[in-house]
Design a protein around this nucleic acid. Structure first.
Lengths: 237, 237
DNA sequence: TTTCAACTCCCCCAAAATAGCGAGGGAGGA
DNA sequence: TCCTCCCTCGCTATTTTGGGGGAGTTGAAA
């Protein structure tokens, strides 16, 4: 069934707004005869965006309760590269279990398959197929369509980034090489004094870099600056 | 020609070492009748790895001269998500031009198409197809095989990460819920006092969590602890 | 040419974090 | 039962950071 992915790409090419992207994802549901598809993304500024077929109530509830911090799908995929079947995830833990029940009540199917996608500047997105069926049927579906799903995830994210870039108004500040060096060393656990020594500069100069980086990142303190720089992929410790 | 990607995946499944991955990439060259394929990756520890068909001399020269810092392909792809034809990149600039001449002398073809791929913890990889031909022929090839190339890039990176993960020995310490809460709030830029307030505990108690987390993570200070917890996906700020 | 951003260095002092010593109650496993 | 881990709280002294002043060089872009 090569035509479905082609159909999808043809439809995708017509898309120019986030609303249309939402409609496209809803259309996927019909195309593949799968109950739910979810694309959701968190960009470097921490602004979330989603195009999905779940009920509005469930989405509101999810955001309201900040379920992103306990959802095993999100937590599990964040550290993975390869697509993951929900059965492989860690659903033990009280929070995860009660989350699962709530999700189930809200119409989320028992089977899921999620693909993590990452863009520049620490952007992270998930593309999920969700359905209600037996384990065997689900394995059959996923085995048959992994490649389609990977490509759809890729193209969806590409389009989402494309649309967002148009509307992206935050003049994002680039950190200078020295600022990055300083943040990296501090993030590796060195004190200002030691970090300065490593860079062969005075402790004061290092402090200037940290302060400047903090200012550019809008961080409240050094720890925050390191966390923001890491989250946006600017530094790796 | 759906069979080629299937052939590739079949071959990939036999791969268990980095040497075999190298051989697989060389094989791609024959499979698609393209002069060069390059997969190269930089993991979170900053260790590079590459599987490619360029000459050893060129690779050595490239590494020796630290061309990764001026190569327009690397620089351009680092800020992009979508695959990019080399013609779209910025080849102006003295350094880029002389790099291009050197590459050309070393047997690198005039046409290129590169796909950026990103994994967890800031891992970044590039998959490139390189050939010598006319612009028209190249557009024809890329148009026809984008999907194959995207999938190959994805699977190559998946395999590379899989092989690498086998060799990673990071000791896994579990942080308690309160420790995670504390680290998360601190990572979001709160001071100890405010974080304690948010958790409705005394500032002292919060301090104990941070210290305990620091100890478990083997971190030198709070900033380091937050950085380590983020890098290992334990917290999301 | 001017301008601007990045890089480098110095002072002082208040605020915050770290390091050391404690304590006790509750939940769960050996 | 005992032991261990988690959660909670207090005190004091020392070290590290943060915020406020400055000032000079270099190199690239406008």
């Amino acid at each position: 069934m090569q035509n479905r992915i082609i159909t999808f790409i043809e439809r995708l090419q017509q898309v120019t707004t986030l609303d249309q992207l939402q409609a496209l994802v809803v259309g996927l549901s019909g195309l593949y005869q799968i109950e739910h598809f979810v694309y959701h993304s968190v960009n470097s500024a921490g602004e979330p965006y989603a195009a999905l077929t779940y009920s509005v109530d469930w989405v509101d509830h999810y955001l309201d309760r900040d379920f992103g911090r306990i959802d095993p799908v999100v937590l599990g995929c964040y550290q993975r590269f390869h697509p993951v079947d929900w059965k492989q995830l860690d659903w033990s833990g009280k929070a995860a279990k009660s989350f699962m029940f709530e999700a189930s009540d809200a119409g989320v199917g028992n089977q899921g398959y999620s693909i993590p996608i990452r863009g520049p500047n620490g952007q992270f997105a998930l593309f999920t197929a969700n359905h209600t069926c037996s384990d065997d049927d689900w394995v059959k579906f996923t085995d048959e369509h992994v490649q389609d799903l990977i490509l759809i995830a890729h193209y969806l994210n590409q389009k989402a980034l494309e649309i967002e870039r148009g509307t992206d108004k935050l003049a994002y500040q680039n950190l200078s090489p020295r600022e990055l060096d300083a943040l990296t060393l501090i993030g590796m656990g060195k004190s200002r004094g030691h970090a300065a020594e490593s860079l062969s500069i005075s402790e004061h100069t290092l402090r200037v870099y940290i302060e400047s980086a903090r200012f550019k990142l809008g961080a409240a303190n050094t720890t925050h600056a390191v966390a923001l720089a890491m989250a946006s992929g600017k530094i790796i410790v």
